[in-house]
């Protein structure tokens, strides 16, 4: 069973429905016990880092997620669900994350004249990755695949080897992270039409 973690941060329905249409048995969970019984978990999320991490701590889901990942089972974080994996988030102050992927989540600043780009980074941007040597999560996607992004903060991992794909937006935005059983995307696969569906399908296969 694949579990989508509900911690009150936005809409889970698109992810749930996308997986259901791919034929996956999927449920929405909000307590550590149900999470432990899952085969794979997905941490989605929109909203603020601080509120999200507080919501996970309150229910003990932070420890449950860490424990789940340590057991070697597959994890997918989406958008805020990727940002929460790092050590520290700098949205509205400084907040401790889940410390699963060493690194930081910092504000996207794109202000090196003449480049003055809008933040949030909102819309469809193409991925930089090598399709012939890519992470299983991105298997089968052509080079330059467009994905839907919407975020104002981005993840800078301490270990560049964990970066599976980037997107260009003034800076190199970390678009996907993979490290063994931990997978995460800054873009929204559940909103990225056929290309996003392929990512979710890959997650079901790993």
């Amino acid at each position: 069973m694949i579990s989508i973690i509900d911690y009150g941060m936005g809409n889970l329905e698109s992810v749930r429905k996308a997986l259901a249409l791919l034929g996956a048995p999927v449920q929405i969970v909000s307590d550590p016990e149900s999470l432990r019984r899952s085969d794979k978990i997905i941490l989605p999320g929109v909203g603020a880092f601080r509120d999200a991490i507080a919501a996970l701590r309150k229910t003990g889901m932070d420890a449950a997620i860490t424990e789940f990942i340590a057991s070697g089972k597959a994890f997918l974080g989406i958008c805020l669900g990727m940002q929460l994996l790092v050590d520290t988030g700098f949205e509205d102050g400084e907040h401790r994350g889940l410390s699963i992927i060493p690194g930081q989540c910092i504000r996207l600043t794109v202000d090196q004249p003449p480049l003055r780009l809008k933040v949030p980074h909102m819309g469809w941007n193409s991925l930089n990755f090598d399709p012939s040597h890519c992470a299983p999560l991105l298997a089968g996607l052509p080079a330059d695949t467009y994905m839907y992004f919407v975020h104002s903060y981005h993840v800078v991992p301490a270990d560049p080897k964990t970066v599976a794909a980037t997107a260009d937006y003034g800076v190199k935005v970390t678009a996907a992270i993979t490290r063994d059983n931990v997978m995460a995307t800054q873009f929204h696969p559940e909103k990225s039409q056929a290309a996003g569906r392929k990512v979710l399908e890959n997650f079901l296969r790993v």
Binding site: L117, M122, W124, N125, S126, N128, Y146, D168
Partner: peptide, 8 residues
Amino acid sequence: MHMLAKRI
């Protein structure tokens, strides 16, 4: 160079 696409 890749860029963010203009949206329709």
